[in-house]
Design a protein around this nucleic acid. Sequence first.
DNA 1: CGTTCGTGAGAGGGACATTCTCAGCCTGGT
DNA 2: ACCAGGCTGAGAATGTCCCTCTCACGAACG
Lengths: 220, 220
Amino acid sequence: MDDEPATSPKWQERAVNRSLRAARERAISRGDQFIAAAADLLRTTGKADFTVQEVVDRSGLSLRSFYQHFATKDDLLLAIIEETVVHYIVALRPLIEAEPDPAEQLRIFVTKLFGSPASDDPASRGLVLFHWHLAATRTDEFAATLAPQLELVTEILQAGSASGVFRTDLSVPVLAAMVTNTLVSLLDMRVLGVHLADEPVTADHVVRWCLAAVTAPPST
Amino acid sequence: MDDEPATSPKWQERAVNRSLRAARERAISRGDQFIAAAADLLRTTGKADFTVQEVVDRSGLSLRSFYQHFATKDDLLLAIIEETVVHYIVALRPLIEAEPDPAEQLRIFVTKLFGSPASDDPASRGLVLFHWHLAATRTDEFAATLAPQLELVTEILQAGSASGVFRTDLSVPVLAAMVTNTLVSLLDMRVLGVHLADEPVTADHVVRWCLAAVTAPPST
DNA sequence: CGTTCGTGAGAGGGACATTCTCAGCCTGGT
DNA sequence: ACCAGGCTGAGAATGTCCCTCTCACGAACG
């Protein structure tokens, strides 16, 4: 009954419970708890190969409950990535929109992406691992999780195309896909520690690369 | 022992026991047999999640033997990728070297890469899956498998840099890493069927993108 | 002729994801 | 207040895999 070792804030649950769509509310809450637990594991252990059991244990809930909310482990991973991407882009967007010059916007985007969060945060290592597992098993849903990022890039490119700073011989959607793909995979490589060149690839390198790729080619 | 269903290509031919250092020869031969069996599975089933047992069964050898030659399943995957990459680059290189213009070389490279092999061949889907699993678990060895490709790209860029066609504000190794990364990940995305843009990304798109990225930026 | 090595056959061992069982709890309708 | 139905907790059970281990055989080597 209530032999909780002072670990589960039941009061909190109650607080949530007493509202209207109790069941639904609670369900969302549970789901979040699992996500939080998983993110926590990712953060603390830096390992991406956590087990469902571990997540369950850390969440203080039960396995039964887990599968009530997520059909499969992959669904959880998908949820985590989605959460992460959205968070990240939401934080980044204002910084970007404050800058009028599209080229500069791109620079900010890339710089931020290759700045603090990825390199040190061990959690991101985990995320990266999911990335490709999910890209393989849940192709469409995976692509969907990148939507926010893709959208922001698209806006930047759109502006740049309109103002003539960026090339127009390739459509904005294609360019956006290229940029997004480049950034994601480059970030993955970096996080994983795959070094194709002896010389490390810096954020500045990436900025210049992308800028050139997105800028109108000189002649032809 | 030799009731192969007429499916085994050159690998096994090469594996026929000419007696020199019999033991060693045979060992190599066995290894190849497993690789062949795995590649075969990949080719016929199109699935990348084959089990070691399946490979063993198809090879007609034993599990015991498998682990005699490969410390782990990942070692087999690594071997397969290595084999594939080397084969591919060896076939591609002459075509590239016949062309004097670096920009054109790059176009050929990209075009070939995004041409026949990847799209239709179900085996490549499998390869792609390994890619990221291995990049995560066997980082360095994975990077090493891309060496042949990286090398070829480097040569192209080197030539282009020297003749002033390509930019020099980024070092050749960095550019090579970027190009390689771009191609590999783009190919992966395509093979997996991850579509970030509604409009499909064509080989031509990739060519133009890479060419611009590798060409000297207009100003600044 | 025995020693050694690589092998075939196949039975474990250990991790995991996922499912199933058996009870309790809460909420909503009556 | 009272009961059905949906969630839950706890945890055993199932199934799939990778990998190990045991046993016995056959061929090369001294």
